[in-house]
Amino acid sequence: MGTGRFILAGAAALGVLASSAFAADDMTGMVTRIDRLNNTISIQQMQKGTVGNAGGAGALQEYKTKDAAMLDAVHAGDRVTYSATDTDGTGTLTKLEKQ
């Protein structure tokens, strides 16, 4: 029983850490696809400069929006600043601003 509880506690801690990555500071990226019928947007996250990489493209993520009006101000190819939360494994945009 003790080992099982330890494993469950570790899994819960990893879940909290993973979801906090979405809620971190504003991220920057480029809009690659907008689906206005399903209120989703795909954003290619731009990596911050690191050794050997001066800010290249990062992971492509798809996010849902709570409000369809968020998508009205942006188009594919636009650079954006955004914030998102993780709800049951689905990323949801909380902020989206065109740069």
Rank of each mutant, 00 (worst) to 15 (best):
2 G>V: 11
3 T>G: 03
4 G>T: 11
5 R>G: 14
6 F>W: 08
7 I>D: 01
8 L>D: 14
8 L>W: 09
9 A>C: 04
11 A>T: 12
11 A>S: 12
11 A>C: 11
11 A>V: 15
14 L>C: 14
15 G>V: 01
15 G>F: 03
15 G>N: 12
15 G>Y: 00
16 V>F: 13
16 V>H: 11
17 L>H: 07
17 L>E: 08
18 A>M: 08
19 S>V: 03
19 S>K: 12
19 S>W: 10
19 S>T: 13
22 F>L: 09
23 A>F: 05
23 A>W: 02
23 A>C: 09
23 A>Q: 13
25 D>P: 03
25 D>S: 10
25 D>C: 04
27 M>A: 12
28 T>W: 07
28 T>G: 06
29 G>L: 00
30 M>G: 01
32 T>D: 08
34 I>Y: 05
35 D>R: 03
35 D>L: 03
36 R>V: 10
36 R>Q: 10
37 L>M: 09
37 L>D: 12
39 N>R: 09
40 T>R: 06
40 T>N: 00
40 T>M: 06
41 I>K: 01
41 I>E: 03
41 I>W: 08
43 I>A: 00
45 Q>C: 01
45 Q>N: 05
46 M>H: 08
46 M>G: 03
46 M>L: 15
46 M>I: 14
48 K>G: 14
49 G>V: 08
49 G>Q: 12
50 T>E: 14
51 V>G: 07
52 G>T: 01
54 A>N: 11
54 A>Y: 09
58 G>K: 10
59 A>N: 15
61 Q>A: 09
61 Q>M: 15
61 Q>G: 02
61 Q>E: 13
62 E>C: 01
62 E>K: 12
62 E>A: 03
62 E>F: 00
63 Y>K: 03
63 Y>D: 01
63 Y>L: 02
64 K>M: 08
64 K>G: 12
64 K>T: 11
66 K>H: 10
66 K>F: 14
67 D>S: 00
69 A>F: 05
70 M>T: 02
70 M>V: 05
71 L>C: 05
73 A>I: 10
73 A>F: 07
75 H>N: 15
76 A>D: 07
76 A>S: 13
77 G>S: 02
77 G>N: 05
77 G>H: 01
77 G>D: 03
78 D>Y: 06
79 R>Y: 13
79 R>Q: 14
79 R>H: 13
81 T>M: 04
83 S>C: 06
84 A>F: 06
85 T>M: 11
85 T>I: 15
85 T>R: 13
87 T>N: 09
90 T>I: 13
90 T>H: 08
90 T>E: 13
93 L>K: 04
95 K>E: 08
95 K>L: 04
97 E>S: 12
98 K>C: 02
99 Q>A: 14
99 Q>C: 06
